[in-house]
Design a protein around this nucleic acid. Structure first.
Lengths: 194, 194, 194, 194
DNA sequence: TATGAATGAGTTTTCATTCAT
DNA sequence: GATGAATGAAAACTCATTCAT
């Protein structure tokens, strides 16, 4: 019989890769790099640990890939706010909703893990350092400024306000199970007037 | 040389124990259980790794001890609020100030680590489960209720408000370097009227 | 498409086998058994690693086969000297030339690898032990004796002379790149008179 | 009781190190890097494999150290010839004797392994490349030139003669068990007049 | 016949823990 | 009480081999 068609093989490969990536996000975000054993990822993906290495050279490479994805996703979802129509407050509400969405927890957890764990691969550290809190502040500042000018956002140093707000959002998402994720309006009370 | 007096030995013992505990808090809170090597604690304490085992049977025992201390400290500092004079808002401000104090970061980190890491000793897990968010909510609820009755705290489900507030405080303290710790008033805006 | 004729399949089979064998000789002789991955042989042969297993059951089987070939070739080329006309010295010169021929390096390397490596399959070890230095000495001795009788070869214990000579030839061929392969006459000075 | 005195500890450390090094020379020289398992070295040294890592960071570091030692020893033993009194032929005879000494086999084997194996650590490769055959030829050339001028050594291109001679010596030492190590005079016949 | 996805045994390396001194 | 040499269990990673297609 002839070997599998290239297309079919590609499909299998892509599926497996995605399967492993999803498993890895789940495990890494919960346990960090050191706490995550490749066998856990394999088990989570329902495959042998050897196969993980068929698709990803090392644990580090896999982790770094996820970090890159997490950063790209979070940055682009912030930059995407500019395309959205609505008042500054509407945009911030949208962002807040997005961040507080349970589905996005792993991204914050991953970045958190990369920030705190030991044994974070050089390249992942590099990415993290390239996008510190300030990078997010810079991208959110214009929206907050507009809000302040419109009188919708409290007076005060803008960098401080944005930094605080993004920090408490990040904090809440990092806590994980056992804590409460507040409603959007609860968080926004820190920055809105009235 | 004559042998050291028993009292002197006791003193050395206590000093060493405290030395190790402080070192352990520092390292565990930053790196978690798995990320912390006994040799790191020893190095931080300036002693040989062998000596740590003279004072603490295992890494798990040491970690569990710290968790116990962290929980006790945080619970008692909340319970202590009742002895303080002042309005409900004053008490909450005091608590907030206390929690946001950099000095107390390690306690939150430790509890966080115990909540998230793998390889957390059974006994530590037990302690953590014995004092979940709800335990803190229960103890804070009376104060918040008074505040609500006095019209100083926003309307709404009290458990939710207290849970949210304690969660965002915890979140911020867990983030660590690279993020902003907001001022007390910034946090309190989530719960105060006007 | 009509199925390939049986004959054509046979031809493909034989070609592939030979292709793999040549690739295996090249890689095994350079890297030894342990150092050789089946994937290297496959890559060298320009086929998939799975296909190697269609032609050879295991790595061990393949290696053993090569060892067998190497031994048979070297033994028969020595035995072939008897069919050659010429003086003893001429025959030894011919043998020396043959051994020092770069093309024959892999055979010596293979036997060397089989002698030294770990993880040499039982059967290959058996073959190697069946044809030790002594087997070569035995076959060369008559020629050297004739040479000694004719005064062309130095006096002395014949087994020793033959053993020495074959050993230094083997040694030189095993060294590989980075060393000099001497001219025939340089080697022969060890055994010839004048 | 007081801890071991620093001196005693030093003694233990030095002994163990030496013990491991000797074991490693033995195993590495016979089986090469890939073929050598750290557990083999540990077993040969009669210690646990963990202890090997107490003294040497990695297998690569250990191997590289041995290579360095082997190169240094062989270079210095050649350079030492200049301090020796005697005719050029005497010096070469001394060198030959030294090289053919069974005790020195491991050095040649190690360098051989480093030249041929896969997975040779970068630093070891560097050392090997720094001291190719030419480095030895350069150091031996003056002696051979003197010998040629004195009519004790055959006519011909000196580099060629020295390279050939050092190569056949190296080759013989690499063969290991199963082959004959010739007498000094047998080897020297390749280069001496008469 | 041909391919490469998939598995798991085996190896390197780390580190909690023990123990002689 | 104090040290650090020593052990061994556990985890990352490699690769021979199998097998569905």
């Amino acid at each position: 019989m002839s070997p599998l068609s290239g297309e079919h093989l590609n499909q299998i490969r892509d599926e497996r890769r995605e399967q492993i990536i999803q498993a890895a996000i789940k495990v890494f975000s919960k346990r960090g790099i050191i706490g995550t054993k490749m066998s856990m990822i394999a088990a989570e993906a329902g495959i042998s640990h050897g196969l993980v290495y068929h698709y990803f050279k090392t644990k580090d490479e896999l982790f770094t890939l996820l970090i890159q994805g997490a950063i790209e996703t979070s940055i682009s979802s912030i930059e995407g706010l500019n395309q959205v129509s609505g008042s500054p407050i509407d945009k911030i509400r949208l962002l807040t909703k997005h961040i507080l969405d349970k589905e996005n927890t792993p991204f914050f957890m991953l970045i958190y893990q990369a920030n705190h764990s030991d044994g974070v691969p050089e390249q992942a550290q590099h990415l993290i350092r390239k996008y510190p809190l300030q990078a997010y502040i810079d991208r959110l500042l214009p929206i907050f400024r507009d809000g302040q000018l419109a009188g919708e956002i409290v007076e005060g140093d803008l960098e401080e306000i944005v930094g605080n707000y993004f920090s408490i959002l990040s904090g809440i998402m990092v806590l994980g199970e056992g804590y409460r994720i507040p409603e959007v309006e609860f968080m926004m009370r820190t920055i809105t007037t009235i």
